[in-house]
Design a protein around this nucleic acid. Sequence first.
DNA 1: CGACGGGTTGATCCAATTCAATAATCGTGG
DNA 2: CCACGATTATTGAATTGGATCAACCCGTCG
Lengths: 224, 224
Amino acid sequence: MPLGLSLRDIDRLEELISARRRIRRGEPLFRAGDRFEAIYAIRLGFLKSSVMSSDGREQVTNFHMSGEMIGMDGIANEVHSCDVIALEDTEVCVIPYERILAACSEVEDYNLHFQKLLSREIVRQHGLMLLLGSMHAEERLAAFLLNLSQRFESRGYSRSEFVLRMTRAEIGSYLGLKLETVSRVLSRFSHDQLIAVNQKHVQIIDTEGLRAIVSGQSTVTESI
Amino acid sequence: MPLGLSLRDIDRLEELISARRRIRRGEPLFRAGDRFEAIYAIRLGFLKSSVMSSDGREQVTNFHMSGEMIGMDGIANEVHSCDVIALEDTEVCVIPYERILAACSEVEDYNLHFQKLLSREIVRQHGLMLLLGSMHAEERLAAFLLNLSQRFESRGYSRSEFVLRMTRAEIGSYLGLKLETVSRVLSRFSHDQLIAVNQKHVQIIDTEGLRAIVSGQSTVTESI
DNA sequence: CGACGGGTTGATCCAATTCAATAATCGTGG
DNA sequence: CCACGATTATTGAATTGGATCAACCCGTCG
């Protein structure tokens, strides 16, 4: 469900790009409070967005991969409202917001396109809120794995085997769980033959089983 | 933090408005799946947005009051992705999206303005995710009450005394809690002289106390 | 090699849910 | 206007899912 731009769309925006930028693993693309100047299209790599509460609790709000656009949070107040950190060496295209605005005014099509991008982010977050507000640990993790799987697939990678670039703690923060819970649930999934886990490497064995978990059917689906 | 448009901004958009529409308490402004045609500016009233999971769990994603804009979720797929239901008799201005698009293309200022509206919604949801992902029941409710208080104030109503238009179950859904928990925490706040509650009527007595709770200081702030 | 960050797993604890009973309020139609 | 059923709210007791605390393992890097 949560998508950025298609390759074709990225081509369309190519003319707006001012530069490329490389961010090394662990380094920020930008931080909350930084002046908002550009939107970024990810060429290659993997990042996380997170917000901080006044008392220092971190909440990961999203993970990003190639083809996705980031930075739109900054439009609201001309200042970024979250941190974006590279979880592996990453390369992004810098698209100055001024150019986007100008292009949107000139071409109604661009305008619609960009508004759709923002709206899609809103819709995506609705899904997240449903997850955070009403799902159990197992459901959250199953949904998370299926989402990653689907995104990898749509990028031409394997949908059944991939590497988690983030730590258990980061997954936990994203899903509103503690890292121990993430670890436990992954172990349980592994034990139940739904996935195979080896540290950061994950293999999805039973997609349907995971789907069943997401939609509420408890693990031990009793046959009535 | 979460705002719609100022009155001045609404005036600016006045020319785009095609009609007014009244929705009676309990009736939908639109439902998930409805074709997206317009954005709505609330003249008067109170509504909730909610999404439904495949297995029927409802998650309230927002409450809306006068001056706020709703419907932007529909831009993404030309179809609304959530239900919006009036919690009291409500009147909205209907602003056809086509006109908004046209206006945005013509006036770069409108364009920026509308994009800010969308971005603000994204930023607001980040705050919600922080709440849902990492706060305790008491912190969630304190944050919720302070937020309502602030919004009422900025509309010229009392910031210390207001009526909750939604049920405990709806508050619970919004905050990721059960209705009993909401009721209990409100009772506790009442007992601790932070608020006075009488069914839907709430009076904020100790704003600072509520703020302290939101930022993690436990209720029983021990003096060290 | 030792230290350190990341991961797993077990034992215990606790905040919030669930189940349940009761009360207050609302809306509707006679 | 009042009575009645339905919805909404409160409160208590028991339960539980996930958090917390803690020990340990593994791989990597200086």
